[in-house]
Simulated assay, not measured.
Amino acid sequence: MTKSTILVVEDEEAIRAMLLLVLEQAGFTAYAAGDAREAQAVLDQTPVDLILLDWMLPGISGAEWGRRLRKETAYQDLPIILLTARGEEEDKVRGFDVGVDDYMTKPFSPKELIARIRAVLRRSGKLSDAGQIVLGDMMLDAEQHRLSIGERQLEVSPTEFRLIQFFMTHPDKVYTRTQLLDQVWGRSVYIEERTVDVHIRRLRKILAEYGREELLQTVRGFGYRFSLTA
Rank of each mutant, 00 (worst) to 15 (best):
M1R: 14
L7H: 00
E10N: 08
I15K: 10
M18W: 06
L23H: 00
A30Y: 12
Y31A: 08
G34R: 09
G34D: 10
G34F: 11
A36W: 01
E38H: 07
A39V: 03
A39T: 05
Q45T: 07
P47R: 00
P47V: 06
V48A: 05
V48I: 07
L50N: 01
W55A: 13
L57P: 01
G59V: 01
I60E: 05
L69K: 05
A74F: 06
Y75D: 03
A85W: 02
E88S: 04
R94L: 15
F96S: 02
F96H: 04
F96V: 01
D97S: 00
D97M: 07
V98S: 06
Y103H: 06
E112I: 11
R116A: 08
S124G: 13
S124A: 15
G125V: 03
A130F: 03
A130H: 04
M139L: 15
M139K: 15
L140D: 02
E151M: 10
E155H: 11
F161G: 13
F161E: 12
L163A: 10
T178Y: 14
V184D: 05
V189G: 01
E193I: 13
R194D: 15
R194M: 11
Y210K: 13
G211E: 06
G221H: 08
F222G: 05
Y224Q: 04
T229S: 05
A230V: 11
A230Y: 05
